[in-house]
Design a binder for these strands. Structure first.
Lengths: 212, 212
DNA sequence: TAGATTGTTAATCGATTAACAATC
DNA sequence: TAGATTGTTAATCGATTAACAATC
């Protein structure tokens, strides 16, 4: 089997496919690319191309077997396997857990929070909060691969470096800091303000594009 | 002056530029594209191209006058002007206000929350919560242009349509529903789970790209 | 002047879409 | 068979980058 190119855009679309396909009633045995595309507002060809990368189950005239496609996407996304995560900046742990319920249910398990100077034996719900000096040993002991950074400003990069030194290979940056990471580390930044601003500006942008 | 093309990507980068430039000390009178690019991990040419669209202040050998550039970007983004918003699904109002502090401080002002059947005279902080049947008259009275949808599932599209009927031109969808809107309406969806999933999958995606 | 920087035009790259053959 | 659908190859589109002239 040849290697197919996997883009980050694909990685964003696959969960959408999965969610939609799962939402269909069990009575839908087959599902076509055209239907998925229409439901999600995408092009049918793109859907087919995407699905061809994760599944070989497409059948002419019928489409994809729904359950098989679900399984293929899940296997590809490794939704079944769980990655272990910790969160730095325990004050935001609550909120992250609430907001990211979806992703946490799927494949990320937050084992612990870390904070500069927590009161002894603090917990957030069932999740324990530790002092930063336990970071390294904890990550090693529990094979943590995901670090969630919620503390703002200059500290963020320093924390990020420490996490990478702990063999964390995925940084999820929920602060407004700009982080740099080595190539082998995956960084995703969801700045509270940043990417939302397009929302603010829409009318002007649209107007400019119309005139252009 | 010719019309320059404005892409959504530009709209995402400008706020990043703005944030970075603002973070510089007042002693930095000039700022160069190369410096901005390095700080944000982007290409210098792209930064220049972007800035050329919103400012004409670049000076050879020196760069851009920092304060003038800040002003130009702000004017372009209309950060100064405030858009009026309402939120549907008042149970999440708290959380949205906390999470989106950045954007709310900048240019979106949430006037009210709406819910199916709120207790009389409910408020969330200082923000009043109204019943859905007041939606239309409220939007008209206050010239609301942004609708924030936090309720999940099938109701979301229905609410969306109602908002559009109220002359709302920007929908910010924080639910997991897939919404469709007419061309003149700006839709931004931040599904809790969806776009974050790439995070989960990084190791495999990277591996595949390496072999490709 | 020489060097640093901008801004623009052309080239490259990647992603999406169109066209179409293959299949059931 | 005819029609519906997949999957692939080629074309298009848009965004980024490279090259370079212009400027101070």
């Amino acid at each position: 089997m040849e290697i197919k190119k996997i883009s980050k855009k694909l990685m964003k679309r696959l969960p959408l496919y999965l969610e939609y396909i799962k939402s269909l009633p069990d009575s839908a045995v087959y599902i076509s690319s055209a239907k998925i595309a229409a439901a999600l507002g995408l092009g049918a060809v793109m859907v087919r191309k995407d699905l061809a990368k994760v599944s070989d189950g497409g059948r002419c005239k019928l489409g994809y077997i729904r359950t098989a496609l679900i399984r293929d996407i899940e296997v590809f996304l490794e939704v079944t396997s769980t990655r272990r995560a910790i969160l730095i900046g325990a004050g935001n742990l609550d909120r992250v857990i609430t907001d990211c319920a979806g992703i946490l249910q799927q494949g990320i398990h937050i084992l612990a929070g870390f904070d500069m100077d927590p009161a002894p034996e603090t917990t957030c719900g069932e999740i324990p909060i530790y002092a930063m000096n336990k970071l390294f040993s904890f990550c090693q002991a529990y094979n943590v691969s995901v670090g969630i950074i919620t503390i703002p400003g200059e500290d963020a990069q320093r924390i990020c470096n420490r996490l990478i030194a702990c063999d964390v290979d995925t940084i999820w940056n929920l602060s407004n800091a700009h982080l740099t990471v080595p190539d082998h580390v995956c960084l995703r930044t969801d700045s509270p303000a940043g990417p939302l601003t397009p929302l603010l500006v829409h009318p002007k942008a649209e107007a400019a594009q119309r005139t252009a």
